[in-house]
Nucleic acid binder design. Structure first.
Lengths: 121, 121
DNA sequence: CGGGATCCACAATGATACTG
DNA sequence: CAGTATCATTGTGGATCCCG
């Protein structure tokens, strides 16, 4: 590796790893999209996302709140009623969600194409 | 959630999760960038990425090869000499790496800003 | 209803050694 | 050189129960 590239290289990696930390993992984006698509209550979000468990959802919501992507509001004390909402800031992840969605789709095609070619040989 | 949104919603989630699967995790992007920046040999890549171990690197390289992002070429049999290279197809991830890098940078600023505000109160 | 606490299985990782 | 094998340790996720 060229030494002069080193600093920029590491900064780049670091920035991308930061992003991965915030929205990476299996559930972050699904949770955000669930709330974005209208779900506000814990159990609604829970049931809207296949296979997620309440403990994991709880952790993810906390993580997202700490990273300013969603807000948590106590609507009523008794019975306890909480509402989650995405923050205006959260909309900025659209800039990465869109490319990721498109790339994911085209990549799937690419992999399928490869499999067909392998079968031929 | 509105039922009519359901199908598109799940497709969107699925595509993004596919992307996360391919380039997600701690090391995928660093490995790609390392090769991109000129490292071709296993041990070069290994030492260029802080904290990665040879076992993890080995797994990541296999994963990336399976997903067509890098190529693995046996240059000489004895002594064994392998060369890794990024594929032309791999360049397509630039479309997501760039946005992720930019978002990561601006997000760090956002978090720092939040911390300063919290200290005031 | 919105989670937290606990227990447990299994996956991931580090360290070290070893091989073709 | 380019990895694998093995073992100990840690982390993470699911299942279940519980509480305000």
């Amino acid at each position: 590796m060229v030494p002069s590239d080193d600093k920029r290289f590491r900064e780049k990696i670091s920035a991308i790893q930061d992003t991965m930390f915030v929205i990476g993992g299996k559930w972050k984006i699904p949770v955000i999209l669930s709330i974005y698509s209208g779900n506000k209550r814990f159990n609604d979000i829970l049931t809207s996302i296949p296979k997620i468990t309440n403990r994991v959802l709880s952790k993810e919501l906390k993580h997202l709140e700490e990273n300013l992507l969603i807000s948590r509001t106590i609507v009523s004390d008794y019975p306890v009623k909480i509402e989650y909402a995405i923050t205006p800031y959260c909309l900025s992840i659209d800039k990465i969600a869109k490319p990721m969605e498109e790339w994911g789709k085209s990549h799937k095609k690419e992999i399928i194409k490869r499999q067909i070619n392998n079968q031929k040989t």
